[in-house]
Each structure stands twice: as structure tokens, then as C-alpha cells.
């Protein structure tokens, strides 16, 4: 397991850049963390680093937001917060997103259970005492 520390919001974009360096070669991420841990905020910073021009905001309601990276690659920002049943993922056509060549960031990945791709990188975001965050990259 590797981890990165974000002491404060000022360091967020630098850490997002390091995160992309560290995980080079993979584009699928399951982002774990409690409500308020900063999942959306972290994904937003990573998407900014990828050069996304669109407004990166919470997909809790829309479930899937799609952006484009600076190099023209699709980014799927998925939030499974409202998913209650795997059947719903079949209905959304999850394979098209999970197994695409695009960047994929999944919030509340717990709700997909075993439907998550085998090679997805699991990332955990945790708040620490002073309000900073620790980003843990859990190796397969």
C-alpha cells in the first residue's frame, strides 16, 4: 500500500499530480471514503490535473458525469451512492463504463460489489486529526 498526505487544500492539486504519477498505466479507480471524506473534491483535483475543462461536480444525483481530458480522452465520474441493487447497474449499462478505455472514477464503489473490474485500483480517503487527508492506494 502506498499513501499520500494532503495536509491542507493548498496542497491538493500537487498531490493529485503525484497520484497520477504513482498510478501511471491505470485509469480505473474505486474511491472509498466516508461521506465528507472528500471523494468528490479529490476526483475534481485529479480531473483538473487531467485537463478536464467541464465543471466537475457531484454525480450523486446524475450517477454518471462525463468529462473530457486535455488529450481528448473520456473521463467517467460515477457515484453509486443511490444504487441499491446490482440490477440497477445492469440497467445503467455499467459494462460500457467500467470496461471502457476511458478514465473511470467510482465513488461509493461498495455498492457495485463484485461487479467492479478485477484490475481496478482501490483508493481510500481518510480524514486525519488536523483536517488533512490521507490518500491510500491499495495495491491488488
Amino acid at each position: 500500500m502506498r499513501s499520500l498526505t494532503i495536509p491542507s487544500l493548498n496542497e491538493l492539486s500537487a498531490v493529485a499530480g503525484q497520484f497520477l504519477q504513482l498510478t501511471r498505466g491505470t485509469r480505473k479507480f474505486a474511491i472509498h471514503g466516508k461521506m465528507g471524506a472528500g471523494k468528490t473534491t479529490f476526483i475534481k483535483a485529479v480531473c483538473d490535473e487531467l485537463g478536464a475543462k467541464e465543471v466537475v461536480n457531484s454525480p450523486s444525483f446524475s450517477i454518471i458525469n462525463e468529462y473530457q481530458s486535455g488529450s481528448g480522452m473520456s473521463i467517467y465520474h460515477i457515484d453509486l451512492y443511490r444504487i441499491r441493487d446490482k440490477e440497477e447497474l445492469f440497467d445503467l449499462g455499467y459494462e460500457d463504463y467500467f470496461y471502457s478505455n476511458a478514465y473511470v472514477f467510482i465513488e461509493w464503489p461498495e455498492n457495485a460489489g463484485e461487479l467492479l473490474p478485477q484490475d481496478i485500483i482501490r483508493v481510500n480517503i481518510e480524514e486525519v486529526e488536523n483536517g488533512g487527508r490521507i490518500i491510500s492506494i491499495i495495491d491488488n
Binding site: M35, T41, K44, V55, V56, N57, S58, F61
Partner: peptide, 18 residues
């Protein structure tokens, strides 16, 4: 102007949920 993260209704819903 628009939200850069959560929507207003989502703020109500998530605060209610906790």
C-alpha cells in the same frame, strides 16, 4: 454561476441522511 460540487437539494438530502 453554478455549483462547483454538490447541488442545494443534495445538501438538504445528505444533511438529512446523516
Amino acid at each position: 454561476g453554478q455549483t462547483i460540487d454538490d447541488a442545494a437539494g443534495e445538501a438538504f438530502d445528505k444533511c438529512a441522511k446523516v
